[in-house]
Amino acid sequence: MSNQSTIIAVAKKVIETEGDAIKNLVSLIDSEFSEAVNFIYNSKGRVVITGIGKSAVIATKIVATLNSTGTPAIFMHAADAIHGDLGTIQSNDVVICISKSGNTPEIKVLVPLIKNGGNKLIAITANKSSFLGQQADFVLNSYVEKEACPNNLAPTTSTTAQLVIGDALSVCLLEMKGFSSKDFAKYHPGGALGKKLYLRVHDISSVNNKPSVKPDTPVKEVIVEISEKMLGVAAVVENNRILGVVTDGDIRRMLNKYDNISGLTAKDIMTPGPKSIEAEAMAVDALELMEANSISQLLVEENGEYAGVIHLHNLIKEGII
């Protein structure tokens, strides 16, 4: 067997093993899961998530997902907790402890301290009969038959299962809170994702030039307007209402069609009824409209009047593409 075929076979086996384990989690979601979600939803504190080793890494990701979807959460490392960080937990907080075995030494020390503080404890564990499983108020079962590691040792399938349980928990809470795309944008203002959720057409078009000509503007002046405004287009406007558009393409087609252009005006070469978009529309909607019509710019309207131009290059610059 070649090196390439071996690699491909191993990769596929890992994915199949983890995929089967994730599918099996569906059968493990029960009323206790629902009770845990409801308790978090009705609690007045934060969600404190703790774990040791690879489970601690998974805990940090679940914390990030909860925070980004409207549920305040914080990470507390199980080892640090028993060496001074237990004060992280406040009286109204809910604690989630993640451990595949549920029997690690740090967990056995930490769990009674959490219980003594009066905080509700939710376990994400593959072993419901473990110390953690027996002590927790709610147990979210993340059982997996085996790890993807051929020695059944390296946390692979088990950590994937923990992550999926955390995602299920987060999305349930998101749904219960009625968390919308606008809410999501508040928590993700940076980067391309944030811009897709909050950047509007007028945020971009307002900083662009606003090329426009009248219907009777001579072609030579139209060409100058397009060239000076550097957007490859000029709106043909009358009483600030869009009648048509002249693009670089219209200019090229005109030169191919006419030997003498001295008597031509914008109205003679414009494309009537051009594609346009409202200033309040989302910038990502402008991108979709451009892609659907194979064009690189859109005229912008506000209250039925010409308000500017948004160009494909603007969207590229903003990272929306």
Rank of each mutant, 00 (worst) to 15 (best):
S99N: 03
S99D: 13
S101D: 01
G102W: 02
G102T: 02
G102R: 00
T104D: 10
P105N: 03
E106P: 03
E106V: 03
E106L: 00
L110H: 02
P112C: 09
P112K: 09
L113V: 11
L113T: 10
G117T: 07
G118E: 04
G118T: 09
G118L: 12
G118W: 10
N119F: 10
K120G: 08
K120A: 12
A123K: 00
T125C: 08
N127Y: 07
K128T: 14
S129V: 05
S130M: 04
S130F: 04
S130D: 05
S130H: 06
F131A: 06
F131N: 05
L132Q: 03
L132A: 04
G133W: 00
Q134I: 01
Q134N: 14
Q135N: 15
D137Y: 06
D137M: 08
D137H: 09
D137F: 02
V139E: 00
L140E: 05
N141E: 11
S142F: 08
S142G: 05
C149A: 12
C149K: 06
N152E: 09
L153M: 15
L153K: 06
P155Q: 14
P155W: 13
P155S: 13
T156R: 04
T156A: 09
T156C: 05
T157M: 08
T157P: 12
T160Q: 05
L163V: 08
V164Q: 04
G166F: 01
D167T: 15
D167K: 12
A168P: 14
A168S: 14
L169D: 10
S170F: 11
